[in-house]
């Protein structure tokens, strides 16, 4: 089995005519956790948006190959079916749609795309309960409207809950630590760690080293001004902590 999950080559992308990613190269193998760190404006969120398929971002050059497929040619829903999951920096509120119905639609569409039969109601409810327990969500959570009136911590736990439901092969966590107190951070990180498998990989996008104390990366990249300027091991996290991003050059 080819253990390369995602290969990004010379990726250039931007928004509204402004180039933000200026030639990103990144190879992710199964079983790995990669951290992409960088200062504000480096292009971290653009990278996650392009990988998830946001229509307002334009790819001007380069490629992203996921499991041998041209990732950039797929609409967002097909990327999800193929096993990609983005945990949003700012999870979106969907008034009037309950978590249960949201997840039912998501799981149902994916199983249909995969040619699998629909889950029976009892099977779905059991899945829902098991995954809620993973992020310490209580019973009434499933009835709430998606992210409506959620605290910052609840929104991020809801992201990891959805991740658990969808069992992705490649998870991209975009600034998942922002707005979390230490207890919520621990719950979220614990959930992510328990979802790790030898077949799957995780990209942790973050400005701060804090989350990386809980989700320990195998590989660390520093993204600056649209390029990865440095790749290394965990020691890079300490280097950034001591010297700041100014001290890191390619």
């Amino acid at each position: 089995m080819n253990d390369i999950l995602l290969e990004i080559k010379d990726l250039h992308a931007g928004i509204e005519g402004r180039e933000i990613l200026k030639g990103v190269n990144l190879t992710i193998r199964r079983g790995e956790v990669h951290a992409v760190m960088g200062p504000n404006g480096a292009g971290k969120s653009t990278l996650s948006a392009v990988l998830a398929g946001r229509a307002d971002y334009t790819v001007t050059a380069g490629s992203a190959t996921y499991c041998g497929r041209d990732l950039l040619a797929l609409p967002p829903e097909e990327r999800s079916w193929a096993g990609i999951f983005l945990s949003f920096q700012y999870p979106v509120e969907i008034p009037g749609v309950s978590i249960t119905n949201f997840m039912k639609a998501a799981i149902g569409a994916r199983r249909k795309a995969q040619g699998l039969p629909e889950l029976k109601p009892a099977e779905f409810l059991k899945l829902l309960k098991d995954k809620m327990a993973l992020v310490q969500m209580k019973g009434e959570f499933a009835k709430r409207e998606v992210n409506v009136g959620f605290s910052g911590g609840e929104k991020k736990r809801n992201e990891i809950f959805q991740m658990a439901m969808l069992e992705p092969t490649l998870s991209i966590l975009d600034e998942t630590d922002s707005g979390l107190d230490v207890d919520a951070l621990r719950i979220v990180a614990d959930g992510v760690n328990r979802l790790r498998t030898p077949e799957s990989a995780t990209i942790v996008i973050t400005h701060y080293q804090r989350l990386l104390e809980y989700i320990v990366p195998d590989v660390v990249h520093v993204l600056k001004d649209g390029r990865i300027v440095r790749t290394g091991g965990r020691e890079l996290v300490d280097l950034i902590e001591n010297q700041g991003y100014d001290g890191i050059e390619g």
Binding site: A52, G53, R54, A55, P75, P76, E77, R79, S80, W81, F85, L86, F88, P91, V92, E93, I94, F102, A105, A106, I107, A109, R110, A113, Q162, L166
Partner: peptide
């Protein structure tokens, strides 16, 4: 459109 993208990113067709 933000809601739409969020839902699609979870695998719900447009």
């Amino acid at each position: 459109p933000e809601e739409l993208f969020y839902m699609r990113s979870r695998g719900i067709p447009e």
